[in-house]
Design a binder for these strands. Structure first.
Lengths: 269, 269
DNA sequence: ATCTCGTTTGCAGTATGTGGGAGACTCTCG
DNA sequence: CGAGAGTCTCCCACATACTGCAAACGAGAT
């Protein structure tokens, strides 16, 4: 038996148990046991332990387990620790309220984008949270902005072969080279039905105090509301303004601006 | 050695390690070890395990541990599973955008309220998330609404002696009886500097399909913006309208309305 | 370069988790 | 209303995997 060096098996198994809930469905003990490949009694005890610390809870009526409130508490602390989140939260909300569209903030995590938060406007309602979800980098405006932090070689290594999600997805690295160059030049990225039909977004990168791209902010919604390419200039400007506001809060010096698009300063909307 | 029945010690210890991060500060291995009362080597190994599954991560420069992204992912799933959250999210955002004030949604968890989400308007900015945090029931508008689900006896058992947070906090159960009665009668609760000076809110209960109070929604912000008692009627009505919208989404039949305050139907704002 | 502090690793002992099986329970179907 | 199937939990012996000590390692500072 290859003994994993210096890690605690029980903890790993408990985490695997929690992972069984990532599809969002309440689970039975035996379901979890099958899904993680453990015996029923072991799984039962792990779940009992996790229940005692409120990492999971069981529905009193159906007796099914689901993820518990302690995880929400921990995640609340985790997101509040994140400087990008702290800097972006209010800016994103103001923009969502002002435009009536969705506004999302994400960072890169390996070969995917990782949502920190999302807000919705009246024209782009949504009943769920994207926080903690991942999406492909090459098929989203946020992802394109995050890719602009990488050179072509790094990007090719990270995304060996980008997968298509719709017929509009750009999967060729030559195309992506151009897309990234355009993001750098114009300061924003667009995406029209590249991940899902009927959806579109405009995104802008967020810079930290060193001038590196550390996150991105997007304006998104149904294509009918985002209305590209008609509103591209307007929404591009709004996204850049909001992203810059966040960058500044992170200590970025706008005078070092990588993008010199026609945004004459922090002027009014 | 009193062997805890049917629970896994390692998992409990790992959870205790995670709990050491609840104060929001990045931690050193030895800090965590002290704070949870474990040896350095055990703590080190637990942290290594938690790091391998991204429940914690370490700052590359300071080498300090902090909570990791996997917790955020799990919590995202957890909140999306919550029917109250699903029903309330968009309603709360619309209200926050419309009023420019903070809007919060909470459920009761034992003797405290538990925030599901919070949104801010331009007049009540905030850079952090309340999700997963707890606040006392007797010193908040949300809490008073949640207390209205209980009778006086239950409340006295739950809150043996309510603690004062400011000189305005109501801590006497006789007073709380009246407050709760008024919440039931008027359909909303107010709170002015009872938890923190300079803060105020107006809250309304959310009902499920059985007519039971399962959550509450509040409008909050600096006292200067919430401006009680001047705006009490207006904000009370807005809070009730929003809360009712959520209740209806949960299957509540408004014709069973407990509160018969002067809201002539779902009419416009 | 040397010292100090914090962290990690090796190792032996054993406490602790494991899994099989039986009992208790609930829900379903007849 | 009763029988059945399925599920979960408890019990116990076994041996695996965790613990704690102590020493080595690495980083940072003087």
């Amino acid at each position: 038996m290859s003994v994993e060096q210096g890690t605690n098996q029980s903890v790993e198994r408990a985490a695997a148990v929690l992972g069984a809930f990532l599809d969002g469905k309440p689970q039975r003990v035996s379901d979890v046991a099958n899904s993680v490949g453990l015996g029923q009694s072991t799984t039962s005890r792990l779940l009992a332990t996790l229940e005692s610390i409120e990492y999971v809870e069981r529905d009193p009526v159906s007796n099914l387990y689901r993820l518990g409130p302690a995880l929400i508490t921990l995640a609340g602390v985790a997101v509040n620790q994140n400087p990008v989140h702290r800097a972006a939260r209010q800016v994103a909300q103001n923009l969502a309220a002002s435009l009536g569209l969705g506004v999302n903030v994400a960072v890169r995590s390996d070969d995917a984008l990782f949502y920190l938060c999302n807000f919705e406007g009246a024209k782009a309602p949504k009943s769920y949270v994207l926080m903690g979800r991942r999406n492909p980098l090459h098929a989203t405006g946020l992802g394109k902005c995050l890719l602009s932090a990488l050179d072509g070689e790094e990007r090719r290594a990270l995304l060996p072969e980008p997968k298509p999600f719709t017929s509009h997805t750009f999967c060729d690295h030559g195309e992506l080279d151009e897309i990234v160059a355009e993001v750098r030049r114009r300061g924003y990225a667009t995406e029209v039905e590249e991940l899902a039909l009927g959806r579109a977004c405009v995104a802008a990168p967020i810079f930290d105090h060193t001038g590196a791209v550390v996150a991105a902010l997007s304006v998104s919604g149904p294509l009918s509301a985002v209305d590209l390419p008609n509103r591209e200039t307007e929404l591009g400007r709004r996204a850049i303004e909001a992203a810059d506001e966040v960058s500044i809060a992170l200590g970025y010096d706008v005078s070092l601006a990588h993008h010199v698009v026609g945004v004459g300063g922090e002027g009014q909307a």
